[in-house]
């Protein structure tokens, strides 16, 4: 049934740290790798080496520029995949029951053998988390690597989503967001994790940790900090050397 469960036993999901993400896209690649070789239809590419390449991805990294009223602009890398919403609008619109939210852990999945490829679930998702595979004609979405996290054939450290396992910056965290004592819930509480597009009323499980303020660019003398060793580290001669130095001195004399 595509009616949503009243509540789920657990709320498995991701916490994404926008302060730490370096925008390397390793999570995108590992996601595509794992999910094209394992559960369900492969994530196809069209015209991959041609003039107009395009393909199915379950995770994509945007980059945004944030310009504060005063101070330097900040670049924020922004990974985005299915948020496994509590009130998932993609599930209820499904006419065939192919889309469902699991009662045991809250993961939103697609039963590909029931999917007619009408695309309504992708229309209903505000986050662009669902993509119709052009080769298979069925809807693809993040499974939270359901075939890894419970997979006893894998070493224990690998039983987490491929994107989390691969992130070299430690910007992605996986856990039960329904349990206030879990490490991810503690992290969200401590760092003020937020929902994307809360006005859409989807109640996402995945949370985003906002970037911390960057170091002050204007330097310690403006910020009032005093470092006793600073004088020893100050550059002795900041002027240009070699040919440029000669040019600088000669032009100065003219």
């Amino acid at each position: 049934m595509t009616t949503l469960p009243q509540q789920t036993d657990r709320k498995l999901g991701l916490v994404i740290d926008l302060d730490t993400c370096v925008g390397c896209h390793a999570c995108v690649i590992s996601c595509k790798g794992w999910n094209t070789e394992n559960y369900g239809a492969p994530l196809s590419d069209q015209d991959a080496y041609g003039a107009d390449p395009s393909g199915t991805f379950l995770n994509r990294v945007h980059s945004y520029e944030v310009q504060p009223e005063a101070g330097a602009a900040q670049l924020v890398h922004f990974p985005k995949s299915c948020l496994h919403c509590d009130d998932a609008p993609c599930v209820t619109v499904c006419p065939t029951g192919a889309s469902y939210k699991r009662v045991e852990d809250g993961i939103v999945l697609v039963n590909e053998s029931d999917c007619i490829g009408c695309g309504l679930c992708a229309w209903a998702c505000p986050y662009g988390a669902r993509e119709m595979d052009q080769a298979a004609g069925v809807m693809k979405k993040c499974t939270l690597c359901v075939d890894r996290i419970y997979n006893e054939n894998l070493p224990e450290e690998d039983r987490q989503p491929a994107c989390v396992r691969t992130c070299p910056a430690g910007a992605r965290h996986f856990g039960d967001l329904g349990d206030p004592e879990s490490a991810v819930s503690q992290l969200v509480a401590e760092r003020g994790g937020v929902d994307l597009m809360p006005e859409q009323g989807t109640k996402p499980v995945n949370k985003y940790l906002p970037p911390r303020p960057r170091d002050q660019l204007q330097g310690p003398e403006d910020s009032g900090e005093i470092d006793v060793l600073a004088p020893f580290l100050a550059p002795i001669d900041s002027g240009p050397k070699g040919f440029l130095g000669w040019l600088d001195r000669t032009l100065e004399k003219l």
Partner: peptide, 25 residues
């Protein structure tokens, strides 16, 4: 601002899309 929740820090601009080609979305 609500899509990225970065609006409180300043004005937000899409700097670079996740992919160089087009996609289903």
């Amino acid at each position: 601002a609500t899509a990225t929740r970065l609006g409180e820090k300043g004005s937000v601009r899409a700097f670079e899309p996740p992919h160089t080609g087009s996609n289903y979305l």
